[in-house]
Computed example of a mutant assay.
Amino acid sequence: MKQMKRWIGVGLIAVGIGVAGCTINNNVIKIEEEKRQLELPAESIEALNIVTDSGDLVVKGDEKATAIHVEAEIKSKNVKPEEIILTLEKDGNNAATLRSEVNTDIGFNYVDMTITVIVPAKLPIALTDGSGDIDMTNLTGKLTIEDDSGDIRLTNTNGEVEIRDQSGDIKIKDASALKLIEDDSGEIVMENTGGNVAIHDQSGDMYIRKHKGDVTISDQSGDIVIDTVEGNVLIESDGSGDRLVQNVTGSYTSK
């Protein structure tokens, strides 16, 4: 889900900033392009909080990383650089916070931002996101995600995962410790996953293939397809939609 976003950026540790602009039709349309880099040593950091207004976010774990490294690609129109805030700071509780926001009025302003974050793979992450797609991969620490809108994709995660999502598709592959998925709308796809997971879904189809662990589902609407679960499957509620459940090694209960 690619979309236009609002933002702003000032970095705590700015490794490099570059700005380029293009003007069309005698300054009627002026798009500014900017890159920002932030870095914070991870030696004493025990957790990372990410708070974003809007924009796409990519988080990659690296077992050899010794710092949290952030790169932001920003495109904007009618927005001053100082109105785009991007900070990476350490707080007093051995945690770091990455924050982005835009302090400008709505109107003819335009901001489109993509943030890429490289972190030590084992670092726990708590993410609060307004809008935009989220892509997280190669992480072994606990992940807590609260998202208003935009697609979520998790790949190759080994830490405990909790997701609370308002809208947008959720796609999870090769994740071994799922605990909670709460979703108002959008498709849920899980493949080669694990953990005793509770899924609360309002609307949207659900596909679960090759899961190790118990699965508990409450669903209001949408199809449910479950194929190959090494554990128990409990469907507490299922409002509407087709259902296919097969290859469950434990018990299968539907209320």
Results as ranks from 00 to 15, higher is better:
Glu230Pro: 00
Asp174Gln: 14
Glu101Asn: 14
Gly92Ser: 14
Lys35Gly: 04
Asn138Trp: 03
Leu180Ser: 12
Val51Glu: 15
Asn196Arg: 06
Thr193Leu: 06
Ile188Cys: 02
Gly168Leu: 12
Gly18Met: 04
Thr249Pro: 00
Gly186Phe: 06
Thr104Asp: 13
Thr104Arg: 07
Val28Met: 01
Lys35Val: 13
Leu139Trp: 05
Glu160Pro: 03
Val102Gly: 15
Asp219His: 03
Glu46Ala: 08
Thr66Ile: 06
Glu83Ile: 03
Lys210Glu: 13
Asn156Tyr: 14
Gln202Arg: 10
Val58Ala: 09
Tyr110Ala: 09
Leu154Tyr: 04
Val233Asn: 04
Gly168Lys: 12
Thr128Ser: 11
Gly61Lys: 03
Gly18Ala: 13
Glu146Gly: 06
Lys75Asn: 08
Lys210Ala: 09
Leu40Ser: 06
Lys173Gly: 07
Glu230Ala: 10
Ile31Val: 15
His200Glu: 15
Ile163Asn: 05
Asp214Arg: 01
Arg6Ser: 14
Gly194Ile: 11
Asn232Ser: 10
Asp165His: 11
Gly9Ser: 12
Asp148Cys: 09
Thr128Met: 12
Asn78Glu: 11
Lys77Ile: 03
Asp242Cys: 03
Glu73Pro: 02
Thr137Met: 11
Thr144Arg: 10
Ser221Phe: 01
Glu73Trp: 06
Pro41Asn: 15
Val119Trp: 04
His200Ser: 11
Lys2Ile: 08
Asp135Ala: 13
Leu178Arg: 05
Ile181Arg: 00
Gly159Pro: 04
Cys22Gln: 12
Lys173Ser: 09
Ile235Pro: 00
Ile74Thr: 12
Ile31Lys: 08
Val161Asp: 07
Gln166Pro: 00
Ala198Ile: 13
Lys80Leu: 09
Asp147Ser: 13
Ala121Lys: 05
Ala72Glu: 15
Pro81Phe: 05
Ser76Trp: 02
Gly239Arg: 02
Ile172His: 03
Tyr252Trp: 09
Ser254Tyr: 04
Val79Trp: 04
Ser221Val: 02
Ile68Pro: 07
Lys122Gly: 04
Ile235Asn: 01
Ile145Pro: 03
Ser149Cys: 09
Ile50Ala: 05
Asn27Ile: 03
Lys60Glu: 10
Met4Pro: 02
Ile115Asp: 13
Trp7Asp: 12
Ser221Asn: 01
Ile31Gln: 04
Lys64Asp: 08
Ile125Thr: 04
Ile188Ala: 04
Gly213Ala: 06
Val117Trp: 10
Met4Asn: 02
Ala95Trp: 05
Arg164Val: 14
Glu43Ser: 12
Leu234Phe: 05
Met113Arg: 13
Ile24Arg: 07
Thr23His: 02
Ser221Lys: 02
Asn196Leu: 07
Thr137Arg: 15
Ser254Arg: 14
Ile74Arg: 10
Asp148Val: 13
Ile8Trp: 08
Thr228Glu: 15
Ile224Cys: 00
Asp151Glu: 11
Asp135Met: 11
Asn232Glu: 10
Ile50Gly: 05
Ile224His: 00
Thr23Pro: 00
Ile145Phe: 11
Leu48Asp: 09
Asp129Leu: 08
Leu48Met: 10
Gln37Leu: 12
Asn78Ala: 08
Leu86Gln: 11
Ala42Cys: 08
